[in-house]
Computed example of a mutant assay.
Amino acid sequence: MGLVAEFDIACEALPLVGVAAARPTATLVLELQYNHGNRPRFLVTVTGDPDGSVESAFDSAHDVDHWTLVGRAGDTRHYQLRPALSFEEQLGAHLEDLDGLEQLATADAIVERIEVTADGWRQTGWFADRAAFDQFRAFWQQEDRFTLRRLTEDGDPEPPGEGLTDRQREALRTAYAMGYFDIPRAASLAAVAAELSLSPSALSERLRRAQTELIEETVARTWSPLPAGEST
Rank of each mutant, 00 (worst) to 15 (best):
48 G>A: 07
138 A>K: 07
37 G>C: 04
191 A>I: 00
221 R>G: 13
8 D>L: 15
87 F>C: 07
169 R>I: 10
152 T>P: 00
216 E>L: 07
167 R>I: 02
102 E>M: 09
173 R>Y: 13
176 Y>V: 01
53 S>D: 08
232 T>Y: 08
206 R>M: 10
2 G>S: 15
224 S>M: 07
111 V>F: 13
214 L>S: 11
100 G>Q: 08
40 P>K: 07
87 F>W: 14
117 T>W: 03
129 D>W: 07
86 S>D: 03
75 D>T: 15
171 A>F: 06
121 W>V: 03
111 V>Q: 04
107 A>M: 01
188 S>P: 03
141 Q>G: 04
18 G>D: 14
216 E>S: 06
139 F>E: 02
42 F>G: 03
121 W>S: 00
191 A>D: 01
132 A>N: 01
62 H>S: 14
68 T>D: 10
53 S>A: 13
55 E>A: 12
132 A>D: 03
75 D>V: 14
8 D>H: 11
103 Q>C: 05
128 A>G: 03
94 H>T: 15
49 D>E: 03
181 F>G: 05
92 G>K: 11
155 G>F: 13
115 E>P: 00
38 N>C: 07
126 W>P: 00
91 L>I: 07
60 S>R: 15
129 D>N: 15
174 T>V: 13
142 Q>R: 14
29 V>M: 04
81 L>F: 11
146 F>G: 04
181 F>I: 01
101 L>W: 11
185 R>C: 02
116 V>Y: 02
217 E>R: 12
182 D>T: 03
15 P>R: 04
85 L>I: 02
43 L>V: 15
173 R>K: 02
218 T>I: 01
154 D>H: 11
16 L>F: 09
40 P>H: 03
44 V>D: 02
164 L>W: 14
83 P>W: 09
38 N>I: 09
155 G>L: 08
85 L>H: 10
119 D>T: 15
210 A>T: 05
66 H>M: 13
107 A>N: 09
162 E>F: 06
68 T>S: 07
167 R>E: 14
17 V>A: 08
136 F>V: 12
108 D>Q: 11
58 F>E: 02
215 I>Q: 08
184 P>W: 12
47 T>V: 13
159 P>M: 12
134 D>A: 14
22 A>I: 10
155 G>P: 05
38 N>R: 11
187 A>Y: 05
59 D>F: 03
52 G>K: 03
112 E>Q: 14
42 F>M: 12
5 A>K: 06
46 V>Y: 01
26 A>M: 04
47 T>K: 05
207 L>F: 05
222 T>L: 06
48 G>L: 10
27 T>A: 05
143 E>A: 11
142 Q>A: 13
31 E>Y: 11
137 R>D: 10
101 L>G: 06
25 T>S: 12
57 A>G: 11
141 Q>H: 08
101 L>Y: 15
211 Q>C: 08
165 T>S: 15
109 A>N: 02
78 H>S: 10
191 A>Q: 01
219 V>Y: 14
63 D>Y: 05
201 S>Y: 06
139 F>L: 15
162 E>I: 06
151 L>T: 01
